[in-house]
Design a protein around this nucleic acid. Structure first.
Length: 424
RNA sequence: GGGGAGAUACCAAAGCGGUCAAAUGGGCUUGACUGUAAAUCAAGUGGCACUUGCCUUCACAGGUUCGAAUCCUGUUCUCCCCA
C-alpha cells in the first residue's frame, strides 16, 4: 500500500488535487510543505493532525518543509474565522516562531536522508516591496477567482479587510517561492486551507507552467460537536506549561468511544487492521478503556516523553483508581509531591490552618479554587466535596489530624477536580 | 441627514411600577446511574449570613415615586428602514 493510500485509509486526507496519489507513489522523494501560523507560542492538539500527516510522509521517504509564518502571521488568515484577527506585534511573532520550532522537532526528523527543513516566509517577504509583490503575484490571479473562494464569500458579508483578503495571495506566493527555490511540489494543510492551497497551485501553473499538488487534512470534531483538542479551559496545548502532561493525558483518556477509532487511525503507529483488532477488544471490556489508554499513552509519550507519561499514569492511578484514604496516607511526601505535581496546588501557612475554625473558612483562603463560600456549601450539601478522598457533607470543624505528613490536604470538587493544599 | 427598534445575569430570551436576585432554554457545576463513558434523571448556578435577613446587579448618569429592570431626561453603543 502506498503512503497516500494509507493516509486516506486512516482518514487523514480530506480533499486532494488530481495527481497527488501518483506523485507520492512515483518512487522519488517528494518535497512537500505545510505552514504554521505563529498565533501562539505553542501548538495544540489540533495542529498535530497535519503534523502527523507530515511525519508519515517523511517516514515514506518524502521530505518535509515546515514553513513558519513569520510574514503571514503579520496579516492573519481569514480562514475559519468570522472576525478579523488582531494583529500580533513583531516580537510576539518571533517568540512564537521559536517555540513552535522546538515543538516540531519532536515529530519530524531533521537529520538523515529525508531531513526536514524549516523556513520562515518572512525571509522572502521582508525584502519585497508592495509594488513588486503586485507585479509578481497580484498580476497573475484575478479578483473573480479570489472572490469565488468559499471563505472569502462568507466573509464578504460580515466584513473582510483588504489585508486578510490578500492572504491567499501571500500564501500562494509561498508555494510558488518554495517550488522555485526548493522544488517543493506539494502542500498540505487543514481543511480550511483548501482555498489557499489551490490558489498557490494556480499561481504556479500560470507563472511556471507546471503542476503542483495539494491535499488537506480534516478538521476533527468530536461526537459532542466540539472541536478535537478543545476542552473547557480552552485548547489542549503541547506546551507543558500551558497544559500539564497529566491534563493532556486525562483529556485523551476521556475521549468518547465514538471518537477514539478516528483518533487512533490518525495518531497511532499501528496499522488500521491492528487498530480494528484493538477496538474489538476494547468493546468486549469497555470499562478498561483499552483504546483510550493506547491513544493517551502514545500521544503523551510522543509529546512529553516517557517520564512524563509515567508520572501522568501514576497520578491517574492514584486519583482515579480505588485509592482509599488509607492508601493516600501511606504515600511518602515524595510520592505525594510526585502524584500531585500536575494538579493545581495552593499554599497557605500552618498558622492560617490553625486559625480557620471550619473547613469552609479554610477553603475560602483559596479563592482561585473556591471562589465563594456558597459554592463550598453547595458542594458539601450535594456530596461533591472530598477531603483526602473522604466525602465531607457538613461544615465539620477542622482537625489537624487531617493533614498528611503534617502539611498536605487533598481536596476534591466532585470526582475529577483535585487540589492539593499545602500548609507550611 | 431623516424615521424606527433595542441594550436584562456565561449565552439566548421573558419581564413593562411592588409578590424580581429576576420566568424559560442552552451552557456550566454537583449528585444518581455507569466504564474516570454516552444517553437519561435530579439538584444547583450574584455575594454574605443562613429560619423569614442583608448587600451588589437588569448599558451609563441623573430624575419621578413610599417603592423602578419596569415611568421621565440626558449620554453611549447596536440593529433596521428612508435619503
Amino acid at each position: 500500500m502506498t503512503v497516500f493510500d494509507d493516509l486516506r485509509r486512516r482518514g487523514i486526507v480530506q480533499d486532494f488535487t488530481a495527481g497527488t496519489a501518483e506523485l507520492l507513489s512515483s518512487g522519488r522523494p517528494v518535497r512537500f510543505y505545510a505552514g504554521f501560523d505563529p498565533t501562539a507560542d505553542s501548538l495544540h492538539l489540533g495542529h498535530l493532525v497535519p503534523v502527523m500527516a507530515m511525519a508519515r510522509l517523511q517516514k515514506a521517504g518524502h521530505i518535509p518543509f515546515v514553513v513558519l509564518g513569520g510574514a503571514t502571521g503579520m496579516v492573519g488568515d481569514p480562514s475559519g474565522k468570522n472576525q478579523e484577527r488582531p494583529l500580533l506585534d513583531l516580537e510576539a511573532i518571533q517568540h512564537n516562531l521559536e517555540s513552535q520550532k522546538q515543538q516540531l522537532r519532536r515529530f519530524l526528523d531533521f537529520d538523515g536522508a529525508a531531513a526536514a527543513q524549516m523556513v520562515n516566509n518572512a525571509d522572502w517577504f521582508s525584502g519585497m516591496g508592495y509594488l513588486e509583490f503586485l507585479r509578481n503575484v497580484g498580476k497573475h490571479l484575478n479578483v473573480a477567482y479570489m472572490i469565488s473562494k468559499d471563505l472569502v464569500k462568507r466573509r464578504l458579508e460580515t466584513g473582510l479587510s483588504y489585508a486578510e483578503f490578500s492572504y491567499q495571495l501571500i500564501q500562494a506566493y509561498d508555494f510558488l517561492y518554495l517550488r522555485q527555490h526548493y522544488e517543493v511540489q506539494l502542500q498540505l494543510g487543514g481543511s480550511d486551507q483548501w482555498g489557499n492551497i489551490t490558489a498557490g497551485i494556480e499561481l504556479i501553473r500560470r507563472i511556471l507552467g507546471t503542476e503542483a499538488y495539494g491535499f488537506t487534512v480534516p478538521l476533527l470534531t468530536k461526537a459532542d460537536g466540539t472541536k478535537f483538542g478543545k476542552s473547557e479551559g480552552g485548547n489542549v496545548w503541547l506546551d507543558s506549561r500551558r497544559t500539564s502532561p497529566y491534563k493532556f493525558y486525562q483529556y485523551l483518556i476521556n475521549i468518547a468511544d465514538e471518537d477514539v477509532k478516528k483518533l487512533l487511525l490518525i495518531f497511532s503507529p499501528q496499522s488500521p487492521d491492528e487498530i480494528e483488532d484493538l477496538l474489538n477488544r476494547h468493546l468486549q471490556a469497555p470499562h478498561q478503556r483499552l483504546a483510550q489508554h493506547h491513544l493517551a499513552d502514545h500521544l503523551t509519550r510522543l509529546v512529553h516523553g516517557e517520564e512524563a507519561l509515567q508520572k501522568a499514569q501514576f497520578s491517574s492511578a492514584i486519583l482515579f483508581g480505588k485509592a482509599s484514604p488509607d492508601q493516600l496516607k501511606s504515600l511518602t511526601p515524595e510520592e505525594l509531591e510526585e502524584v500531585f505535581e500536575t494538579v493545581p496546588q495552593g499554599r497557605a501557612t500552618l498558622q492560617q490552618f490553625l486559625e480557620a475554625s471550619t473547613l469552609t473558612d479554610l477553603l475560602a483562603l483559596f479563592p482561585q479554587f473556591f471562589p465563594s463560600k456558597s459554592e463550598i456549601r453547595r458542594l458539601m450539601e450535594s456530596g461533591g466535596m472530598y477531603v483526602n478522598r473522604c466525602p465531607i457533607n457538613s461544615n465539620a470543624p477542622l482537625d489537624s489530624e487531617w493533614l498528611l505528613h503534617g502539611r498536605y490536604l487533598l481536596v476534591q470538587k466532585g470526582k475529577k477536580q483535585f487540589f492539593l493544599l499545602q500548609f507550611l
